[in-house]
Amino acid sequence: MPGDSPLVGGRPLPEVVRRIIADVLVVALEEVQPGKGLVRDLGAESIDFMDLVFRLEDALECQIPFPRWQRFIEATLEGQDLAVAITPEVVQLFAERELAGA
C-alpha cells in the first residue's frame, strides 16, 4: 500500500525509486516492474549504478558514498547472479535503509 511507504518530496518512496530507475536506464516507467533484473532486463551497465546512487542522494537529500551501495549489494545478494538479482525491490530496500539512516 502506498500509504505505508515513507514520503519523499511528497511522493511515496516506491514511486520515486521507480521514476529514478526509469530515468537512469532511459526506459518507460511501465517497464520498471517488480522482479525485473536491472542489468539483464533493463540494460543497466556499471556506470548506471553510480548514476542511480547519485540520483537517490538528490531525491533523499542525503549523502550516499557509492561503496555503501556496493557493500549493501554484496551483503544482501551474496552468491546470487547480480544481472537478475538487482531488481527495483532491491533498490527500494536500499533507499528505505538510507532514509532510515542505516
Partner: peptide
C-alpha cells in the same frame, strides 16, 4: 564530490 554525478566526469 557531494554535488557531481560521476557520469558527468566521463
Amino acid at each position: 564530490t557531494e554535488r557531481t554525478n560521476p557520469i558527468a566526469t566521463l
